[in-house]
């Protein structure tokens, strides 16, 4: 293996490790002899079996966040563990907001660079090189660290496929975050969930997304009906999330979800680079747009140059009649 030891920050959602975290564990296993993880959750120990089955040998349990935002506590716990255990070769963080916060704080604490927006890792000699897409995925940059360990990588969702390795439950060791000073002063006082129906956007086999070309918020209902008929999840461009038509949880793209469905249908979406990086990996891409010059047509497999408010209702009608 290229590396001796990799640490992974595991995030927990809906009471279990997130898919992105399991993807990072799978990647770690490919490159390192030993994978250990950090978890900031009251039930850190409860995840030892699942994390072990994805190849983690040890869980450093930070315990409950007690209302703290994760960044400062997690970074401090990792920095303390480096003091007592030595640095691993690399640390993987998911490109989520919490993951980025923790990576940023750790980087500043250790005085070490971070490589972000990673979509692939390559073993080159005794180090890892990271690939990252720029200019809307048109070009790929390969970057390496010139500083010492640990190398901090922030990796985008769906860059690796999560696969179990069937390992034994991981050992659990408690770690304390230590003195945080003012950095831990923010407190979550309430959490709100926004309702979503149907399959999860980032797990659905079919995604139907709408953009500003729908013209008005009510037209988004067409997207929901079409998604339902195709057993898929509805998604959106940032333009209509910012405009308040749909919640942020629907957003596909650089700042939103990365999706890789078998079918991605973009309706009234121009195909800005920041949208494309979130959906370019889809197996089949279909676009409906009235502008023949829209960039989305350059990457689609099937495109209709037409008015969404005509084409989509017809499509719904044909599918309903079947």
């Amino acid at each position: 293996m290229v590396l001796a030891k990799v640490w992974v920050l595991v995030e927990v959602g809906d009471g279990k490790p997130t898919t992105s975290s399991l993807e990072l564990l799978t990647a770690a296993r490919q490159f390192a002899d030993l994978t250990e993880v950090f978890v900031a959750d009251a039930s850190g120990a409860d995840h030892a079996a699942v994390l072990g089955s994805y190849g983690a040998k040890k869980v450093f349990s930070i315990g409950s966040l007690e209302g703290s935002l994760p960044g400062a506590k997690v970074a401090s716990a990792i920095a303390k563990s480096i003091e007592s255990n030595g640095a691993p070769d690399a640390i993987f963080f998911a490109a989520s907001y919490d993951g980025r916060d923790a990576a940023a704080r750790l980087s500043a604490k250790l005085g070490l660079s971070v490589i972000t927006n990673v979509v692939n890792l390559l073993a080159v000699g005794s180090e890892l090189h990271a690939e990252h897409a720029i200019f809307g995925g048109e070009q790929v940059l390969t970057t390496r660290f010139t500083s010492g360990a640990p190398h901090i990588f922030v990796i985008r969702a769906k860059s690796f496929v999560a696969e179990e390795s069937g390992g034994a439950p991981a050992a659990v060791e408690k770690v304390e975050p230590g003195e945080l000073g003012r950095t831990d002063d923010s407190r979550v006082v309430a959490s709100h969930a926004e309702e979503r129906t149907g399959p999860k956007l980032d797990e659905a086999a079919v995604v139907v997304s709408g953009g500003r070309g729908l013209g008005q918020p009510e037209k988004y209902e067409m997207i929901e009906s079409l998604a339902k008929l195709l057993h898929g999840a509805p998604g959106a461009s940032r333009a209509i999330v910012d405009a308040g038509w749909v919640p942020y949880a629907y957003q596909v793209g650089q700042t939103g979800k990365t999706v890789k469905p078998n079918l991605y249908l973009a309706v009234g979406i121009s195909g800005a680079t920041q949208h494309m990086v979130g959906m370019k990996g889809s197996k089949n891409i279909v676009a409906i747009n009235k502008d023949r010059e829209a960039p989305i047509f350059q990457i689609c497999d099937f495109g209709i140059v037409g008015d969404a408010s005509k084409v989509v209702p017809q499509l719904i009608e044909i599918l309903q009649a079947r």
Binding site: E138, T142, F302, V311
Partner: peptide, 25 residues
């Protein structure tokens, strides 16, 4: 950190694009 290479990403194959004449759907 340093950039070691810049490459053109694999381009997607151009697909079929039709003008909607009422039969697009």
């Amino acid at each position: 950190q340093e950039i070691v290479s810049v490459q053109k990403a694999e381009a997607r194959q151009a697909g079929v694009i039709v003008e909607d004449d009422g039969t697009g759907a």
